[in-house]
């Protein structure tokens, strides 16, 4: 597994709330290779954001890491914590909400400059002053990247306040800011959900292209299978805090093995076919069913599914599935 640079193994995270303890991630495993675009898909509430926050090292205060490991480039992120060189530098972030993720009181230029002051690729560790030479190099870099994300007149844009920009413009700036530190991994948490549908695809393709050009991997969460299909190299699907299946994007959509994936894909609206939902409801994280959390809704479930979820099915051609009774791997 030499080419795995991000590896999440059996990660479990719970939230303590007044209503009890909610185990929101249950033994999740996931690995990413350098340079790939990985999609993390699943219905809203299945734990995508929590996983993204765990990798970024910014879980909420009431979160409790129950077990698991999380390594990035050989470094243990879970216990050592993300260091200055990793957070915002090797791993950067594109937030879901481009509206609230800027401080409303400072210009866009100020906020980019602040980021570059601490996270510029030219900065040496521990450097406190923002030397003029570095400042002007960073400025050049910023302007170039703003042009690359197709923002016209970047000099003028820098002098504007966030509220003077449209949602699409703000998200382009966010993408630029995520790429400016020249990271190895960009975590984009539903980066276009808050935007107008008409520009979503455009921005996602831009993110994909720019990241690929710069050799950065992207972990991209979405609840929309369509966007995952369009921009990802590989896809992992999660259900109620457990990861179900990981595969190359063509395999994922072409020959899914996990019953949940199958039903999910079947439920997609296609021409002529009526919409078929999955019967039953997503369980609450406060009282999840034991074993495989999908078993109350799964037509293939047997007694063993309630006992454990750790069915290790030997992956075929990088296609891994977490299920006791997966569908056969259909060779094409």
């Amino acid at each position: 597994m030499a080419d795995e640079f991000l590896s999440v193994h059996d990660l479990s995270v719970s939230f303590g709330t007044e209503g009890g303890v909610a185990r929101v991630l249950d033994q999740v495993s996931l690995s990413m290779r350098a340079g790939e675009i990985m999609g993390l898909v699943g219905e809203s509430g299945c734990g995508k954001t929590t996983l993204a926050r765990a990798i970024l090292g910014v879980l909420p205060d009431n979160a409790l890491i129950d077990s698991g490991t999380l390594t990035f480039d050989g470094a243990d992120l879970l216990h050592a914590g993300a260091t200055e060189h990793i957070r915002g530098r090797a791993i950067t972030f594109v937030p879901q909400d481009p509206f609230g993720s800027f401080s409303p009181l400072f210009t866009v230029g100020d906020q980019i400059a602040e980021l570059m002051r601490w996270k510029s690729p030219d900065r040496s560790p521990g450097e406190r002053f923002y030397a003029r030479a570095r400042r002007s190099a960073d400025m050049e870099r910023t302007l170039a990247l703003l042009r690359a994300v197709q923002l016209p007149e970047p000099e003028r844009l820098l002098r504007k306040y966030p509220h003077e920009l449209s949602g699409g413009q703000r998200q382009r700036v966010m993408i630029a800011m995520a790429l400016l530190p020249e990271p190895k991994l960009v975590i984009a948490d539903e980066p276009t959900t808050a935007l107008d549908v008409t520009i979503q695809a455009q921005i996602l393709k831009l993110l994909r292209r720019l990241a690929t050009e710069r050799g950065a991997s992207v972990l991209f969460t979405t609840h929309d299978l369509g966007t995952a299909w369009e921009i990802c190299d590989r896809v992992t699907v999660m259900y109620a805090g457990q990861e179900a299946e990981t595969a190359e994007v063509v395999d994922f959509f072409g020959r899914p093995r996990h019953p949940y994936t199958r039903m999910l894909l079947d439920s997609l609206p296609t021409q002529g076919a009526a919409l078929r939902g999955i019967p039953g409801e997503v369980p609450s994280p406060y009282a999840p069913p034991p074993g495989c959390r999908f078993h109350p809704r799964c037509p293939r479930a047997t007694a063993i599914c309630q006992d454990s979820h750790n069915a290790a099915v030997e992956p075929v051609a990088g296609h891994s599935v977490r299920c006791h009774h997966p569908h056969e791997w259909a060779a094409t």
């Binding site: 910014v58 200055e84 957070r87 915002g88 530098r89 972030f93 937030p95 993720s101 601490w118 800011m177």
Partner: peptide, 13 residues
């Protein structure tokens, strides 16, 4: 607020 979350996620001091 979200912007403070963003700044923390990006590792600003």
């Amino acid at each position: 607020s979200n912007f403070v979350f963003y700044q923390n996620a990006m590792g600003l001091p």
